[in-house]
Design a protein around this nucleic acid. Structure first.
Lengths: 202, 202
DNA sequence: ATGTCAGGTTGACACCGTCAACTAAAGGGC
DNA sequence: GCCCTTTAGTTGACGGTGTCAACCTGACAT
């Protein structure tokens, strides 16, 4: 049996340091040797706790998903379902704005395959389920495409819009398309308005 | 003055080989040394034609954007504006499905900054303008968020939805959310239906 | 006391991008 | 026809990376 005293400390230290590097300089800047260097161990020490680089990455990503879900849950709650849904959308966007590098890690980086990293997968699933649960108690506009699990598919719709918007805003596309800051804000408002038109009945 | 006979051939060979590698194994698998190896020159030869790795990447990306725009323009045209717009959306999705790695290169990889690579930027801009132009001749549902260039902002809305959907479908998220193939198809249809609800007046 | 084994070490290997120095060949000006 | 610059190629090196292999060390169970 392992002692778990100091070992877990070093394991955690690796993840936390990797997290810090990604937060500061992005995924490209992350290297295990740099992590080891910063926490003052040899370049091989991390390998005693993680089989490979991907496993550290998955651990970091898992924590990001958890943090993201926490952020969504911590949104200002309101009684009106539609206001609350809109608040959730805004919380999504604000997280992406405030944590661009973490966001990119979770949603636009090529992470190791989820099936190899169940913890990461579970955390991601949980974040998504927050949106599904929110939708499942609401009645939305009907479409001519009927599905058996509408909440899930409409969650995909919303998620796609928001994620696509964030991608456009974060990526070089914003320079490429020459979007001014007010253009950006207008685009966000306009997109939210169209989302409402697409979903809200009546 | 350079001769341009053999030189352009090697330069092109680099880009084409890089393209092939990315198409086959993704951006992560691309290395300049491998490119050089495959076209049978020394590992430094590419540097005589491109200042850095990023410049080859930008060249490859530029060609991808051009190819993507060509695909959009080659869609089956129909007389009805709305059908045509839907066709454009489907062309977008089919390109992503048929060329997942190229798509990822263009839209979810961290490319070198666009301002340093005007050719790449111009090609990307052109692809986007196809959608803007298509929208600019149509009358859409009004929203309570008025903007000075509605076609552009609604293009962003559509682009976001489509890109977000593709991202979800391509990424590990599809495994994470345990989407079956019929779930995927249903999600696409449902999303297109909601897009229509959001945009189409009346 | 002894053996096992997790957790740390150093050292090597094969990659990578890039810098530097060298060489061969092609043109242009005199 | 010679010289000199420029271009396109070469080889070799440096520092960086992830990862494999071997070794050491100390705690714990028997």
């Amino acid at each position: 049996m392992p002692k778990h005293g100091r070992a877990e400390t070093i394991k955690d230290a690796c993840v936390e340091e990797a997290f810090r590097i990604i937060e500061a300089d992005g995924l490209e800047a992350l290297s295990l040797r740099e992590v080891a260097r910063r926490i003052g161990v040899s370049h091989q020490a991390p390998y005693k706790h993680f089989p490979s680089r991907d496993h550290i990455l998955a651990e970091v990503a898992a924590r990001c998903y958890a943090d993201f879900a926490r952020h969504l849950e911590a949104r200002p709650q309101t009684a009106d379902d539609w206001d609350d849904l809109a608040g959730m959308g805004l919380a999504y966007l604000s997280y992406a704005r405030e944590n661009p590098l973490r966001y990119r890690l979770m949603f636009t980086s090529t992470l190791p395959p989820a099936e190899n990293h169940p913890d990461m997968m579970a955390n991601a699933k949980h974040a998504f389920s927050l949106l599904c649960d929110r939708l499942s108690t609401m009645t939305l506009r009907s479409t001519d495409v009927e599905v058996d699990d509408p909440a899930k598919h409409d969650a995909i719709f919303i998620w796609s819009c928001l994620h696509g918007l964030v991608s456009l805003m974060q990526s070089q596309a914003t320079d490429t398309l020459a979007l001014s800051p007010q253009d950006k804000n207008a685009a966000i408002a306009r997109l939210m308005a169209r989302l409402s038109l697409a979903l809200r009945p009546g």
